[in-house]
Design a protein around this nucleic acid. Structure first.
Lengths: 218, 218
DNA sequence: TTCATGAGTGAGTGCTTACTCATTTTAGAA
DNA sequence: TTCTAAAATGAGTAAGCACTCACTCATGAA
């Protein structure tokens, strides 16, 4: 029943059992959502007794919070931030188009790799402020400055025109997120045949906009 | 306990009790999500006996499906489509910037008015294919053609440059959606002071893109 | 007035749940 | 090997759940 495989979570700061519990919870929450998951299922998936869960987590809600805190911590410090830092630090001589493409592909791959999990986190965050707070902490602390600085630098280098970084960021995130959602959840009704071409066209649109400059666009 | 107020749902094709049940379900699902809502709560909110729910809906899951079908039906045919049809049919002589602004404000107002509900629908749709199918039916049938035709017409009129309509649409939806999410859910950490200015800047970015044309934007 | 009908009821039912705790197992020191 | 303390266990428990059903009662026809 339990598996040792691709443990996302078992880090140094928590012991083996605790890691197994969090991994199992992660897996089943991702499948069915928080409320519809039972502690019994989690125990079976983790290959431990149900009682053991409650030695490590006072209640089921505490388990969810523990999971999210770990996730946000790991995601931010080990998985999500370093690659983007690397990409954004090696932009000399590259066309903005290629930088954006590299970032978009990297971010899509990241979200898609952890999509089952991302679904639960998003669907819980939609309903509960306390869950949002856990996630937003890291975003304000690390992601926003990182992205904001990058955009400001691109403006200074003249690669993009002067603009407010948060608006550019929202545009980029919106396009990337919907692209992932379409590919993961809406593939039956709105399939994407050639993902690379789709990304190219999306970036082209973001870069040059809707407007028809030749005709002045009224 | 029960209220007669702003019933979104009591249409001709369902009787008073059924409407009350759906309205109550709507309200509580919106607050706590589907799994965490009990039929007892719904009955109390509707001011009827718990048993009555099951005279109209075989199971709790049937109740959710009934609710979503009603919602999608009402939203599409009465609330969501007509205003946008009107806006999109009166574009002669208007600048594309103003058309987009009008549409974005209209769509934001629509989603924000029904946001508690939109949250449940999105968070359930994230996890369950059958829920997605209920929603996507109307979108493929009515929304996509409407929007697609509009974009194609704008291209023909030379107001926007040639592009694939679904990419333009995804960009517009992404920007609008994230704007609403930021305003409704992230207002504590990322407040928006002047929403109209924010919309203006977002549309400007969509229209003219990131690229710095003066400098060629390497 | 009498009766038939079916909408509405809510206490009841059996099942599932999160959580507990007396007991067993494990691990390491003496 | 023996002892000890912590870790792990899983049957048990009370609460809560979706759903049922024997019943009430309003309505309207005869």
């Amino acid at each position: 029943m339990h598996e040792q495989d691709d443990a996302l979570l078992d880090e140094g700061n928590l012991n083996e059992k605790e890691g197994r519990i969090l991994d199992a919870a992660c897996k089943i929450f991702a499948l069915k959502g928080f409320s519809a998951t039972t502690t019994n299922e989690i125990a079976k998936e983790a290959g431990i007794a149900e009682g053991t869960i409650f030695r490590y987590f006072k209640t089921k809600k505490h388990l969810l919070h523990g999971l999210l805190k770990q996730l946000v911590h790991i995601m931010a410090d080990r998985i999500a931030i370093p690659p983007i830092e690397k990409i954004l630090s090696q932009t000399q001589g590259k066309a903005i188009k290629d930088i954006l493409k590299e970032v978009m592909i990297d971010r899509m791959a990241l979200v898609e790799k952890h999509f089952p999990l991302a679904k639960v986190v998003l669907s819980e965050a939609m309903l509960h402020q306390d869950i949002r707070d856990i996630i937003l902490g890291k975003i304000t602390d690390r992601v926003m400055p990182l992205m904001g600085d990058f955009i400001d630098r691109m403006v200074l280098e003249g690669k993009i025109r002067p603009m407010k970084s948060h608006i550019a960021l929202r545009c980029f995130v919106g396009n990337t997120l919907l692209l992932v959602v379409q590919r993961q959840l809406l593939k039956d009704k709105f399939p994407i045949e050639d993902i690379e071409q789709e990304i190219d066209e999306t970036i082209d649109l973001m870069l040059y906009g809707f407007a028809n400059r030749e005709k002045g666009g009224i």
